[in-house]
Nucleic acid binder design. Structure first.
Lengths: 208, 208
DNA sequence: GCACGACTGGACTGTCAAGTCCAATCGATG
DNA sequence: CATCGATTGGACTTGACAGTCCAGTCGTGC
């Protein structure tokens, strides 16, 4: 059982890094639009103006590329929620965030959450991807949890409230709402789910 | 533009119906386990002990089979929630249902909701499937909504509460909770999401 | 018992996708 | 400017999969 790090050259020049990044971006877009299995490497080649050998120069195989795509989408999801995600420590902040998510979903024409669709497609059958996505969700939950913890420290949230559980509940609402929104071609389910989640947090607040 | 009902023979004998049903069952199982794109017709053939020509005798193409699988999974989901789904008209009934869902998820080794995974995979790019799944979700939501409506008629739920919106919120929580449960390999997110949803309903109840 | 249509078997085709290979360039460095 | 590894091009191999075709069997109504 040798370390078997067969892929990825030891060093990358600036040009190489740019090419590699271009590939990941194109793959992320295509996979978001069509799913992992309906995105061929030929599609990725065409979209990123790259040849087959380059793909296999930078990535051991399609699975390795998919793993990179997960990482890239995780970054994108976090960036898209900036700056809201950094300070979800008050009811007004949560509501602003809610509106931003709804806006984001509309801008994406209700295609759903990039991480959610990847998770649904890969969580069974490609264990490294599942782990990676579980980490992404954990980080996301953690951001929410941090804001709630701050609220509790300030006494805005009841001492009996569990920031971890509240954060999991909120994230569930987001994912479920996005899935229903995507399926029904309407953003209402997302709005309704988010409002429930915010109500749920509000319910654990001490009187104003 | 002729009606173009190219597929499906006019009549089915008992044996033919059985074969056809066997195919759909096998396809449903395989697709639930591996996803639509990772399930080949050869796999379905092997699992249902059927030859290629039989597949194409009963279904116009893979898409037609997938549509049937959606219908079958919809039936299964509803059956699995029987009898709870028929009378979600009290808080205790909702809690019993919650426990049943958690149990079901554990029994399925956290593979998630059959409808949810299909929706995530097919909602973009295969419009007939999306419509079909949207209908399934609407029926599901309607069952929940009916129970809540009954509660409101009885005066247990506040007149200001909207059974439709509450039902959508509950269904979102289920789907989101199942997705996180599947990704994290833990049923906790599902439990947390369901508890939030039930709390949310309880919050709209008139005092006991 | 025979005729006709439902039903079945399985070989065959065409396409497309993953992954391999080798030879050619580019560019920093001594 | 010579060298070496990073980088690139694209043809080629291999296998899988959707879908086609035709020939044969079964079973039910007449």
């Amino acid at each position: 059982m040798l370390p078997n790090q067969k892929s990825e050259p030891r060093s990358l020049t600036a040009r190489g890094a740019a090419t590699r990044s271009r590939i990941v971006d194109a793959a992320a877009d295509l996979i978001y639009a069509h799913g992992v299995d309906r995105t061929s490497l030929d599609d990725v080649m065409a979209a990123s103006s790259v040849s087959k050998s380059q793909l296999y120069h930078y990535f051991a195989d399609k699975d390795a590329l998919v793993l990179e795509v997960i990482a890239r989408q995780t970054e994108r999801v976090f960036e898209a929620q900036t700056p809201h995600l950094e300070a979800l420590d008050s009811l007004p902040a949560l509501k602003l965030w809610r509106n931003a998510i709804v806006r984001l979903n509309k801008a994406a024409h209700g295609k759903g959450c990039p991480l959610g669709t990847l998770a649904s497609e890969l969580a069974n059958g490609f264990e490294p991807a599942r782990k990676c996505l579980a980490d992404s969700f954990a980080m996301w939950r953690d951001r929410i949890e941090q804001g709630l913890t701050k609220m509790r420290e300030r006494g805005e949230l009841a001492a009996s409230a569990d920031p971890y559980e509240l954060a999991v509940a909120v994230l569930s609402a987001i994912q479920g709402g996005l899935l229903l929104a995507k399926t029904t071609h309407s953003s209402r389910p997302l709005e309704i789910a988010l409002d429930m989640a915010i109500d749920h947090v509000a319910r654990h607040m001490t009187k104003a």
